[in-house]
Amino acid sequence: MEVKMQVPPEFEEHIKEEMLKTAVEAYKLAGKREALPEYMNMKQTAEYAGISFNTLKKWIAMGLRVSNIAGMQRISKKAIDDFYLEHEI
């Protein structure tokens, strides 16, 4: 299905600017997430998941997998991604 609309040039330019701004923001966010290590500390994990530290503690209590080696806790990106998938509605 094709829909044709005529809009004023300034409106079209505004839409292009907003789309570009949104794409740049998404690209920067993806870059920050990719820069994080595979096994993250708690602060990095909260940043990766886009949540607060308190929410991260709640998620751990709900079953988020944590690697604990000699008292050092790390959470993998895969564990976070899996946790999100397990809690989809």
Rank of each mutant, 00 (worst) to 15 (best):
M40D: 12
G50V: 05
P8M: 11
E2F: 04
K77S: 07
Y84M: 04
E25M: 09
N54C: 00
K78T: 10
Y27R: 14
E34S: 07
G31A: 07
R33G: 02
T55P: 00
I60P: 01
E18D: 01
E10Y: 15
E12I: 01
V3N: 14
E86A: 14
K21S: 14
A35Y: 03
E12Y: 15
P37R: 11
Y39N: 10
M62S: 07
H87E: 07
E2N: 06
S52V: 01
L64M: 01
M62D: 15
A30M: 14
M72I: 15
L20S: 12
A70D: 11
K28C: 02
P37H: 09
Q73T: 01
Y27G: 00
T45Q: 05
I60W: 07
I75H: 01
E34M: 12
A70E: 13
Q44N: 08
T45R: 02
I75Y: 06
E34K: 15
V66H: 01
H14R: 14
A30S: 10
E17M: 13
H87Q: 01
F53Q: 03
E12W: 09
I89V: 13
Y48M: 05
K43H: 00
W59D: 06
Y27M: 11
F11S: 10
T45V: 05
I69E: 13
A79F: 02
T22L: 12
A70T: 09
L36I: 10
Y84H: 09
R65E: 12
A30E: 13
A70H: 13
E2C: 00
V7N: 00
L56I: 03
S76R: 06
K77M: 04
I15K: 11
A35V: 03
G31Y: 03
A23Q: 13
K21M: 03
E88C: 08
T45L: 04
G31V: 03
F83W: 08
A30Y: 03
A70S: 15
M5Q: 11
I80Y: 09
Y84W: 15
K58R: 12
K32H: 13
Q44W: 05
G63Y: 06
F53G: 00
L20H: 14
L20C: 04
A70V: 11
W59S: 03
S67V: 00
E88K: 10
D81K: 06
N54S: 14
E18K: 14
E13I: 00
I89E: 04
R65S: 09
E17T: 08
L29I: 02
F11H: 11
I75S: 11
S76G: 08
E10N: 08
S76Y: 02
P9V: 07
E86D: 12
L20G: 01
A70C: 09
M42T: 11
E38L: 12
I60K: 04
E25R: 12
S52N: 04
P37D: 06
M42H: 04
T22C: 04
Q73R: 13
M42K: 15
M19V: 12
I89H: 04
M72Y: 11
G63W: 05
S52P: 02
K78C: 00
M5L: 13
G31S: 08
E18P: 00
K16S: 07
S76K: 06
A46S: 08
K78A: 15
H14W: 12
K43P: 00
Y84C: 01
A26S: 09
A46V: 09
E38Q: 13
S76M: 02
K58W: 02
